[in-house]
Design a protein around this nucleic acid. Sequence first.
RNA 1: UCCUCGAUAGCUCAAUGGUGGAGCAACCGGCUGUUAACCGGUAGGUUGUAGGUUCGAGUCCUACUCGAGGAGCCA
Length: 463
Amino acid sequence: MENTLIKSIYRNTERYLNQEIQISGWVRTLRVSKAFGFIEINDGSFFKGLQVVFEENLPNFQEIAKVNTGSSLIIKGVLVESPGAKQPFELKAQEITIEGDCTSDYPLQKKRHSFEYLRTIAHLRPRTNTFSAVFRLRSLISFAIHKFFQEKGFVYVHTPIITSSDAEGAGEMFHVTTLDLDNIPKTKEGKVDFSEDFFGKETNLTVSGQLNVEAYAMAFRNVYTFGPTFRAENSNTPRHAAEFWMIEPEIAFADLEDNMDLAEEMMKYLIGYALENAPEEMAFFNEFVDKNLLARLENILNSEFVRITYTEAIKLLKEKGESFEFPVEWGLDLQTEHERYLTEKIFQKPVFVTDYPKDIKAFYMRQNDDNKTVAAMDLLVAGVGEIIGGSQREERLDYLEKRMDELGLDKEEYDWYLELRKFGGTRHAGYGLGFERMIMYLSGISNIRDVISFPRTVRNAQF
RNA sequence: UCCUCGAUAGCUCAAUGGUGGAGCAACCGGCUGUUAACCGGUAGGUUGUAGGUUCGAGUCCUACUCGAGGAGCCA
């Protein structure tokens, strides 16, 4: 008999009601009394499960009654309207086959577990309600990102995972090597001899696809990357991981305003997509993770994001007279407490902060006419903080070379990047969206470790 | 990396420096519509590790390990 997915039972109930069907899935919970019992079964196709009623007329009633939570079953029966209040229908079992038994030391119980504990059983936690919702959302939003950019005619570019340049000086990198670490070849000067290494030079895992994708923006106009990124930073926070995914659009013949327009449109598209395509999951987050989630997201869909310059933000923070732990001073980077105050207290919606002092931003950002600031933008959101970082890029070769000299960067290393400015360069801009931070924002989940299937963080690469 | 807090049964947590408990889970039994089912019973512990103080340490001290929150770095 053909297997029916629980999702289609929910979506096309009339088609199955009073019909004989077969389902298969895992036992979430089982309650049994003398002559009958209930099994809550989840088959993975849908956030919600199906209640199965079984009675003692089943030849293996005693056996089924003893089945443990977590076991996998195949059930034939008739779908009927349920007299119970908590579900519209249920499956009256005619035949139950035990596909896979589950031992009694199964760690998932029918009660709430702490996220900390579930992290220690990362191979089992997708079977819980919360993680079922998180990872279905993650899958949907991955698709939505491609849908958004593809429908706008953007070209998806796969930039390399292994790179030979420290793209933007963006922090510590993971070395990639085939050298024998117990016997490292050395040069005459006593340094590691990378000419012996696989690529004949020092290589690392990428920290950003931006520099590479700029080359493709100069050919396809509008492009984006969506792939894994690696940072060997010793950061220990709920918002950082050593391996995470990033979306990096890059647009040609465009400036910082166009960049923010794109980012705002994308954010709203993704929020709308989640609300429309994962209603059960979003309702669950709203009930169990963050009671204000839906109100907040719906509010954002109908409001303009705030756009203020760094200089204005500093002025505003000073005027408010709030006592901060760290000083608010032009030239100093905004601290997390300042960013939160801006987006959570003053404006209560997403805020673009633009035009930061050049000394606290990367070399490739376009210098403004004031000679002090660059055309950078950060998007700050409640709870998560910085979710997007981007800029208009410096397209003027002389300005770019001068800036690299000031910062002591090796122009030889970036020769191909500089050539993009020589050979028909254009104004262009782009940004990086932290994919996991987006999932956190959409779900209300507050730790990045809980939106990555098997998270890699400092001193943790289990599973 | 820095600051703060924490680690006790499988899970979530109690226990004034004086014989370590409860709820849930597990196991056994009961129950004709349950839904974190309910009722009765049984079993379950070198209190994160290593030292120290004390007649006596889960409790006080030191170091370490792991975890959480905050900061920095950023997405």
